[in-house]
Simulated assay, not measured.
Amino acid sequence: MSLFWAVFVFLIFQRLVELRIAKRNEIWMKQQGAIEFGKEHYGLMVAMHIAFFVSLMLEVILFKDTANQYWPVILGLFIITQAFRVWIIKSLQRYWNTKILVIPNAKVIKSGPYRWMKHPNYLVVTVELLLIPLLFNAYLTLCLFFVLNQIILSIRIPQEEAILSQWTEYGTEFEEHARFIPSLSKKE
């Protein structure tokens, strides 16, 4: 199996596992009284991620691109990114989800990478949308989906932060944290 198909199958399997975890967590959170927000853009986000995989596959197949000449380095960065993703999911535990679900007055989690930044999960997705196409010289996919992801995040992140601030102590707990750049402030 080529490197492309190995990575592609891994990613599809990983996303299916994540969706299963998210659904299980969603059921638990709603049993705890969680409220769902962001339905109006969630479908767009899902469609963008599906289109990313289709675009990646088509670009690699149609242009018969091979792995980037620096593929070992890029693949290493990708593996580190996946370890970071697992750390994020383990840190949030039952609160990790692909949807915006908020349990009113729930304690805000500030463990794992959340000790230093507000949105490590969005950082991981953004880095992936750069590394995966770069790994296979799929530059059209890289440019298009990097821009689309930024558009969606420009809608989702402010909405998520406003909702969390309204329903939890998020605003107070994360006031000194940057969105994506780790904050090493003394106040923990």
Rank of each mutant, 00 (worst) to 15 (best):
S2P: 15
L3G: 05
W5D: 07
W5H: 10
W5C: 07
V7F: 04
V9M: 08
V9W: 00
V9K: 01
F10A: 12
F10V: 10
L11T: 11
F13R: 08
Q14P: 02
L16K: 07
L16W: 12
V17A: 03
L19Y: 13
I21R: 12
A22Y: 00
E26V: 08
I27M: 00
K30E: 15
G33N: 05
A34N: 02
I35S: 06
E40H: 11
G43Q: 09
V46I: 15
A47Y: 02
A51S: 05
M57P: 04
L58V: 02
E59Q: 01
F63P: 10
D65F: 04
Q69E: 14
Y70E: 06
V73N: 09
I74M: 00
L75N: 03
G76I: 11
G76P: 02
I79N: 05
I80V: 10
I80L: 13
I80C: 11
R85L: 05
R85K: 14
R85C: 06
I88G: 06
S91Q: 03
Q93S: 15
R94N: 15
W96T: 10
L101I: 06
L101A: 03
I103C: 00
G112I: 02
P113T: 13
P113C: 08
R115S: 12
M117G: 11
K118N: 07
K118F: 00
Y122S: 10
Y122F: 13
V127W: 01
E128R: 07
L129P: 04
L130I: 14
L148E: 02
L148N: 03
L148H: 02
Q150A: 09
Q150L: 15
Q150C: 13
I152L: 04
I155Y: 07
I157Q: 08
P158G: 08
Q159D: 15
E160I: 10
A162G: 11
A162R: 15
I163R: 03
I163V: 15
L164Y: 01
W167V: 09
T168D: 06
E169I: 09
G171F: 01
G171Q: 13
T172M: 09
E173M: 14
F174R: 07
F174M: 13
H177W: 07
H177T: 12
R179S: 14
F180R: 04
I181K: 06
